[in-house]
Computed example of a mutant assay.
Amino acid sequence: MTKIAFSPCPNDTFVFHAAVHGLIEDAPKLEVTYADIDKTNYWAAKEEGPEIMKISFAALPWVLSNYQLIPCGGALGRGCGPLVLTKNKIKDATALTGKKVAVPSDRSTAYLLFRLWAQQKIPGGLGEIVVMPFEEIMPAVQKGEIAAGLVIHEARFTYEQYQLHLVSDLGSWWEEDTGLPIPLGVIIAKRELDGDKIAKWIQDSVHFAWKHPELSKSYIMEHAQELSEEVAASHIDLYVNQYTADLGNDGFEAIESLLGRAMKEGLVPDFDLKLLRK
């Protein structure tokens, strides 16, 4: 039995449905722990973490000595970045100078993108940055408890229900700034395991999901945290793409650019970028 941890989000359950349910010939039997990425980011940094995990690309610098990057099964793409939201419409980002902002994690790609964006767009600097469960951020912004919130996941599709205003789509900013896709979530595996074999059955599970999308629907909705089928389908369409099947050169360049810039700004520990491809 191989222990694996990934989130209950529709993109992850879509990707791993076939492997979890014994529909992929070469996949091992999987013991699944469903955990949001903010939890797996820290769990992976501990020695007792499971053999295979889904974490944020931003957490890689803390874990690459023990885990290898698997070049498929993750979330990386265009038009799928986190959003910065406020209660009232503001003229530009400098209005957030010295203000309190909530983020869903301080070890996530969303957080790195936010900090890199803020350094460029808010030269006077932010005020307090607080970590808050992502489902609490939009209500807190709506109530005026915080000046702005960084949101991820399905909040892209629901923030207008809270009468909130978009300050910046950090995915669009990143793509304009670099020309590269956005690295969000990545699959990692213990270094003593055969990474090529793991990549093969994960790729097979991805392709099976695309070929037979109807088979995974009940599994996806069982774990979809009260999302509607329409929102779950939009989530999958946005986060499961060509990079999920294979990171490719663009994918690796995006990861190296994000983590290289973050390392230069002191947002992540120093590490050898070559470990990303080993």
Rank of each mutant, 00 (worst) to 15 (best):
V186Y: 08
L238N: 07
S218Y: 09
T244R: 01
R191G: 10
D194P: 03
Q161E: 14
S205I: 00
H207Y: 08
F157I: 07
A199Q: 10
E214F: 02
L180Q: 11
I255K: 00
E214H: 01
A233V: 09
Q161K: 13
S218H: 10
S216P: 00
A189D: 10
Y162E: 13
A199D: 04
G179Y: 12
N249L: 04
D177Q: 15
V206L: 01
S234H: 04
F157Y: 15
V231F: 05
A233I: 04
S216A: 14
I187A: 08
V240L: 02
L193G: 04
E192H: 15
Q242V: 07
N241E: 09
Y219W: 15
E230H: 06
F208V: 09
N241C: 01
E176N: 07
Q161P: 04
Y239N: 10
W201Y: 14
F208Q: 11
F252Y: 01
G195S: 12
T158P: 03
Q225D: 14
K211Q: 12
M221F: 11
S205M: 03
A232N: 07
E154H: 14
G248P: 01
E160F: 10
Q203Y: 01
V240S: 07
E154I: 13
K190Y: 06
R191K: 15
H235K: 06
I255S: 01
S218G: 02
A254T: 06
D194Q: 05
L164P: 06
F157K: 13
D196T: 14
S172A: 13
Y239H: 02
N241P: 01
A232C: 09
L227W: 05
S228R: 03
E154V: 12
G179F: 09
L180H: 04
K197N: 14
G248M: 01
L184Q: 10
A232T: 12
I188V: 15
I255W: 00
Q161Y: 08
A199W: 00
E229P: 09
A189M: 11
I198D: 08
P181A: 08
A199Y: 03
L180I: 11
R191I: 08
L170V: 06
L247G: 01
E214Y: 04
N249T: 00
E175A: 08
W174E: 10
L247H: 00
D246N: 05
L170E: 12
E175S: 05
I182M: 11
